[in-house]
Design a protein around this nucleic acid. Sequence first.
DNA 1: TAATATATGCTCAACGAGAGTATATATCAT
DNA 2: ATGATATATACTCTCGTTGAGCATATATTA
Lengths: 330, 330
Amino acid sequence: MDPLDSPNSRPARLAAHSSPQGIAADLVAVLVAVTSGEPRVLTIQDQRALPSGPFELAHRSLQSGLRAWVERQTRLPLGYVEQLYTFADRDRAGTTGQHVISISYLGLTREQPAFGEHEARWRGWYDYFPWEDHRDGPPLLMEKALQPGLKAWASAASDRAAQRARRQRAAMLFGFEEHSWNEELVLQRYELLYEAKLIPEATRGNSSTSTSTRAALSNTPGHPMILDHRRILATGIARLRAKIKYHPVVFELMPDTFTLLQLQRCVEALAGRQVHKPNFRRLIEQQELVEETGETSQDTGGRPAKLFRFRRAVLAERAIAGTKLPVSGA
Amino acid sequence: MDPLDSPNSRPARLAAHSSPQGIAADLVAVLVAVTSGEPRVLTIQDQRALPSGPFELAHRSLQSGLRAWVERQTRLPLGYVEQLYTFADRDRAGTTGQHVISISYLGLTREQPAFGEHEARWRGWYDYFPWEDHRDGPPLLMEKALQPGLKAWASAASDRAAQRARRQRAAMLFGFEEHSWNEELVLQRYELLYEAKLIPEATRGNSSTSTSTRAALSNTPGHPMILDHRRILATGIARLRAKIKYHPVVFELMPDTFTLLQLQRCVEALAGRQVHKPNFRRLIEQQELVEETGETSQDTGGRPAKLFRFRRAVLAERAIAGTKLPVSGA
DNA sequence: TAATATATGCTCAACGAGAGTATATATCAT
DNA sequence: ATGATATATACTCTCGTTGAGCATATATTA
């Protein structure tokens, strides 16, 4: 089943029946850049929200509308844009009950001095999902904070079978007990934590939260966001982690020329895990994704590294499906 | 770039600026079943439209709303549901200029006697995309109808470089000249044909269509649909063809028990190409996706085949990412 | 009874992915 | 100057997967 519709991911509620004319739509953007080896997202509202704005039908397509809107608001040139998901089941906390359809997009760019009326700022995406960064092995907070909370959640199930199912699901998603870590399951992990009420967003606006839940929450790492913006961010990260494996979109995040190690660090930053250096280079070069510029970079510390540039021609040569980047264990 | 935003996929037009309150949303469903080895979609309006209806916010989530709506309208139990794409750039032919956001979904089910007020009928999806069926090799109509049209389109480009780019793109997508056929590029192929005005939908409502274009159109195979429904169907087929390779959704289309050849025929129907029988069986069995029922089926003609059933447990055991189905050359 | 169609199982070669090792060339601390 | 260290670059090996062909078993049908 589609993780975005996992049955218990949010409390059931009956919304008012709206006539089609009463619906509002807005765009939400997950804008990603990778700066000095860290994946970052553009945020507004004291870093608690993703950039968003009302949907206007003044463009040829949704996508070109988003592109124009982002470039007007932030002056960022978007290298790659892709629709993520359309949400319509938001909890509009505090609002008048007006329901909003949110159409979310992923956009790749290069970090620039933030610009915009809404105090736009770049922030590392692992600030929101610290458990997703496995570049130096599983982060300590997984044992310290997540595993106890998930264990408690599993034990709280009604019967033995349900407890076992919960434990198995947690182990599968977080790589406990023999299970290997799968970096693509960002959204499923977030939704499990949400379901287990280990995420502040899950109990927001719910006054009947128990004391024990509050205690667990206070230990939960990761910066919260408004509404379901963190879920949208999780969707974007998951999509990007899957995409870089078979589609050369990483280059939209790189400067014009770069060393192979810089490229590798960028992939590692996105995937949240290390990759095997020799294999990475082999795959990049044998696919002819890059070409040498003839120059070298010396500010890398050791031996000067050759500078490369992306061969944009491959986008025309090959079907937009046949390229691979290795994301495997170190 | 996302194929759904390819720059020339439809004529640019400036739509009226709508206030957020004036937006209507509806759901469009691509409902798929596979009956006796043929992939089929549910259609309405004399088989020229996909089932669709107004979006109502009376449900917990968009997805559960769609599920309820489909099951109410058609009495089909949906085994698997996934959001496809949200379109907002439709040409609302003949309507009052009211703009509609269409949220499209893919749903898998088993074919049942059609039910519903809108003369709902099942129809083979290759009636709409005859060039997508390569189970017996490339269909003749590719040489006969598509290749000449695409050749003309390529030659009509402004300069030599553009002509070459067009030829290359057509060859890449349709498998001409050394290029191999990639069954996943359904949407890209449709959009290329649209761009080349080889699809009736592309010139609809445009009175200035040239005579030569009309001639080409009359030769274009494939049943048209209203609005951009054929594009949505292409999106669904592409998504499903990609999905079956790493996610065990085929079983949602199968009866409770089935033979391995039936399963293979189902995969072949969806992928539009044949698969190697011994390899198919090997992969299915070594992944423990199925278990024997102990019974055999004799109505297959030759030696009785063992009957299998899907092991639903794998959905809980494995991360929703680690299963493979072979879709390769025969 | 032979022909035929399907079911089922086995083998082999080619390729790619993962992992380890070795060498070259720079910077930096002493 | 020199050794330590960090990076860059190249090569090798093994294993599992994948594509492809062949062989055998068991039914129906002419």
